[in-house]
Amino acid sequence: MVQNLQPILNVEHLTMRFGGLKAIDDVSFTAYQNHITAIIGPNGAGKTTLFNCLTGFYKPTVGRLTLCSSNQSMLLEQMEGFKIAKDAKVVRTFQNIRLFPAMTLLENMMVSQHDGLMRAAGYNLTGLLSRTALGSELKNGWRKIFSKIGLSYYARLEKEALDHCCFWLDQVGLLDRADEIASSLSYGAQRRLEIARAMCTRPVLLCLDEPAAGLNPRESSDLNVLLLKIRQEHKTSILLIEHDMDVVMKISDQLIVLNYGKKIAQGTPTEIRQNPQVIEAYLGHTAVQVESNNNSGIHQ
């Protein structure tokens, strides 16, 4: 791992102020390529605010967010909200799941292909004349004529997009239910669909906001497998907010601990587990004393 530690995201002196409240106070860290970086901290520590700054939902008061993808670096804090997902390819999921409930799973996935398909459809001008996947029960002869004059270009790209969507639905185990309405899914399946939808945009950095919240132990271990697969097979770096220590400790390469908007620790899971400041933030001051007493007892 050590030999190719290339940074993907550089956060420098990030500060977010809401009136008098400093939700994030001078946080700096670096996330590396092909790493799972987890951000943990007690409730109200500013984790989700950090995500919102990162994905353009908030404009940070101070600080610089640099995304270093393949060969260029982009300043996320200067980009418009939707462009962070579109151009910088930083895609997020939400703490409270945000699907398109009345649409089918496959349509949910297809929405994430919007940009490419819009271009394929000539911003809907040539698309109006070309075939679409639905309603294309044409005879072969017609199909040939269509492709001769270039009108099946959109249909071909749409098919590719559909295949890509189906691939990701398959990855999260929802392909069989592709034509069902999203709101009919169980909570865990909705979480997986949201992750699949985000992955469908081919992101370089995937930001997951509490993906394991509300999942049962089996589902969260499945999630672990999925996240590891995403990291290894699809070369996507992951930034993760999580309360479920089982998930965090098992899969993350690097942990960042926030408390009251400040970064209090950074390191590998084993380092963090022994960090007295972290234990204090989670369990209170006395707990640290007990812990250190125990430790000293063991050492003696």
């Binding site: 939707f82 997902a85 939400f94 945000r98 929405v111 994430s112 459809a121 996947a133 985000a198």
Partner: peptide, 23 residues
């Protein structure tokens, strides 16, 4: 059936999710 139609419905369903997907 074109992407714009799906995007319209997606906006109706959840505007914030649309933004997060780059629409």
């Amino acid at each position: 059936r074109l992407p714009i139609g799906r995007a319209w419905e997606a906006i109706r369903e959840d505007e914030i999710a649309c933004r997060a997907l780059g629409l």
